[in-house]
Amino acid sequence: MVRSLHFPSKTPSVSRFLFYSFFKTLVGQQVTVELKNDLAITGVLISVDQFLNIKLDEIKVVDEARYPHMIPVKNCFIRGSVVRYVQLPAQAVDTALLQDAARREAQQPTTAQQGNVRVK
């Protein structure tokens, strides 16, 4: 199992990088992608890009009786913008490492304007 997230220092959009790196560690795992049109597809994660577009192999639609449309499709490209959830195998996720990476990313200067927040 891959147990490291790799963070090059100069990335234009740091924000995009955490989950891009994270998904790359999950290549080869079986995941279920649920889309905003309620279609859910299970398959082996082949690749992901910076937009979090996802490619799956050996796909199967979760509710095949209702959605026979995809029967002749063996692998597919899913546009990141239409993803609602991705269900992941928990044993493939190193949560401590992931939390560290999220904290580290939070330290990076962001392009967002500094907010004005008061919480006691």
Binding site: L35, L39, I71, C76, I78
Partner: peptide, 15 residues
């Protein structure tokens, strides 16, 4: 592109 949800590779024989 914004109007695309999924692009699937068809298995021509199965299709």
């Amino acid at each position: 592109g914004d109007n695309i949800c999924i692009i699937g590779e068809l298995d021509d024989i199965r299709d």
